[in-house]
């Protein structure tokens, strides 16, 4: 297993974000998941997923 560190000054200067891109993505993901939870979207997903999806199996 390897890790990488950004110790190249040129690369650092090019980088626009103060944090690694994946960290920003994870934070955005957590934010979106929270917003989805507040809006009740997990219930919509659950209700769809616990019924046999007739379209998915080519009947609906």
């Amino acid at each position: 297993m390897h890790t990488w560190k950004n110790n190249d000054k040129t690369d650092s200067a090019k980088s626009r974000l103060p944090i690694p891109g994946w960290t920003a993505g994870v934070l955005a993901g957590v934010l979106f998941l929270s917003m989805g939870a507040v809006r009740g979207e997990f219930t919509v997903i659950f209700q769809k997923a616990v019924m046999i999806c007739l379209e998915c199996i080519g009947i609906g």
Binding site: W4, D11, P20
Partner: peptide
């Protein structure tokens, strides 16, 4: 492996 840097251009160690 795992990237600990700031993006795709980070060198490998």
């Amino acid at each position: 492996g795992i990237s600990a840097g700031k993006g795709a251009s980070a060198p490998c160690q």
